[in-house]
C-alpha cells in the first residue's frame, strides 16, 4: 500500500495532532513518573523533569497507609454500590412507566425527572443539610450515633440516588422508546402482569443501556468528593476521594506522595473503563438520538 502523500495540510494536521496528544499525555505521564521518585531528596532538588536518582515504591506504600486507603476504599464501596443499584432500579421503573404507558402526566413526569439534571447540586446543599439534620435515624442503623441522618453514609447514598435518577431516567426512557410496543402487547396477551412485563421482557432488553449507564454512573459516584466531604463530618466515614486531602500536608506537601495516591485512586475507574469500554462509549452517545 502506498503511503499517503505528504501535503503541507497533512503535515500541519499531523503536527497539530501530535502536539495535542503530547500536551494531553504529559501531565499524566509526569504524575506516574513522579509517583516512583523520592520527593525531598530527588524531585524537590532536581526538578520534575530530571532523571531520577532512584526509583521507589515507597510513595505507594505510604499513600496507602497515611491516606488510610483500605478504610476509605471500603467507605466508597459502601456508598457507591448501593447508590448505583438503587439509581438504576428506580430510574428504569420511572422510565418504564413514562414511556411504555400513556397516562395523563407521563410527559410532565418525565420532564420533572430529567429537569433535575440541570440543577447544580451544590445549590441544594443547605436545604438538604437541614433536612438530614432534622430526620431522625436510629443509631442502630448507623455507625456514627448521631441520632439523625446527617453524618451517615446512608444520607450520601440517598442524595446520590436522588441526583442521579434524573439523568438515568432520561437515558433509559429514550432507550425504552426504541423497544417495539408489540413485545409488551404480546406479553400482555400471554397473561404477563405489569411487573412481569417489566422484569422479564423490558428490563432484559434494556441491558445494554443499563451496562453503559452503570459504568458512567460508577465513575461519577466514585469521583464524588463534595457530598462525602460536607455530609460526613467523621473523618472515618469519608470516601476514597478524601484520602488525597489527608495527604496534603499542613505545612509541606509531598507531591510525589499525592501523585501515587491519585494513581491508586484512579485505578478502579480505569479498570471499570477498560473492562466495559464498549458500553462506556455507547453510554456517551446514549440518549443523544431518539430511536
Amino acid at each position: 500500500m502506498k503511503p499517503p502523500r505528504l501535503t503541507p495540510a497533512r503535515v500541519l494536521l499531523q503536527g497539530f495532532l501530535i502536539t495535542v496528544a503530547v500536551a494531553w499525555l504529559l501531565p499524566v505521564a509526569t504524575a506516574v513518573y513522579s509517583s516512583f521518585r523520592y520527593y525531598e531528596a530527588d524531585t524537590q532538588v532536581n526538578g520534575v523533569f530530571s532523571l531520577p536518582t532512584a526509583l521507589t515504591l515507597d510513595n505507594y506504600r505510604d499513600a496507602w497507609a497515611v491516606g488510610e486507603m483500605s478504610k476509605t476504599f471500603g467507605n466508597t464501596a459502601f456508598i457507591v454500590l448501593p447508590a448505583l443499584f438503587f439509581t438504576l432500579l428506580l430510574a428504569s421503573v420511572v422510565a418504564y412507566a413514562c414511556t411504555r404507558y400513556s397516562w395523563r402526566f407521563n410527559i410532565a413526569f418525565l420532564i420533572l425527572f430529567t429537569a433535575g439534571n440541570l440543577m447544580p447540586q451544590q445549590v441544594l446543599f443547605q436545604p438538604l443539610f437541614q433536612m438530614l439534620k432534622r430526620t431522625p435515624w436510629p443509631d442502630l442503623l448507623s455507625d456514627t450515633d448521631t441520632g439523625s441522618l446527617l453524618g451517615t453514609k446512608i444520607a450520601v447514598i440517598l442524595i446520590h440516588v436522588a441526583f442521579q435518577i434524573g439523568f438515568c431516567t432520561f437515558v433509559l426512557a429514550n432507550y425504552m422508546k426504541t423497544i417495539p410496543t408489540e413485545l409488551s402487547e404480546a406479553a400482555a396477551i400471554d397473561g404477563a402482569s405489569v411487573p412481569r412485563q417489566f422484569f422479564s421482557v423490558i428490563l432484559p432488553l434494556t441491558r445494554p443501556a443499563l451496562a453503559a449507564l452503570g459504568t458512567l454512573e460508577f465513575t461519577w459516584l466514585y469521583n464524588d468528593f463534595f457530598w462525602g466531604a460536607v455530609l460526613l463530618n467523621q473523618g472515618n466515614e469519608r470516601p476514597i476521594t478524601s484520602s488525597i486531602a489527608v495527604l496534603n500536608g499542613q505545612y509541606a506537601t509531598d507531591f510525589n506522595l499525592i501523585a501515587a495516591a491519585s494513581i491508586v485512586i484512579a485505578l478502579p475507574t480505569l479498570i471499570v473503563y477498560l473492562a466495559l469500554q464498549r458500553h462506556f462509549i455507547a453510554g456517551l452517545t446514549l440518549g443523544s438520538t431518539k430511536g
Binding site: Y38, Y39, E40, D58, R61, D62, A65, V66, E68, K71, G249, Q250, Y251, A252, D254, L257
Partner: peptide
C-alpha cells in the same frame, strides 16, 4: 524544621504509626 519533620515522618514511620493509630 517542621517542614522536613513532617515529610520525614510520613516517609519513615508512616506505615506503623498510622496502622497503630487507626
Amino acid at each position: 524544621s517542621r517542614r522536613s519533620f513532617i515529610v520525614g515522618a510520613a516517609a519513615t514511620l508512616g506505615t506503623g504509626a498510622v496502622l497503630a493509630a487507626c
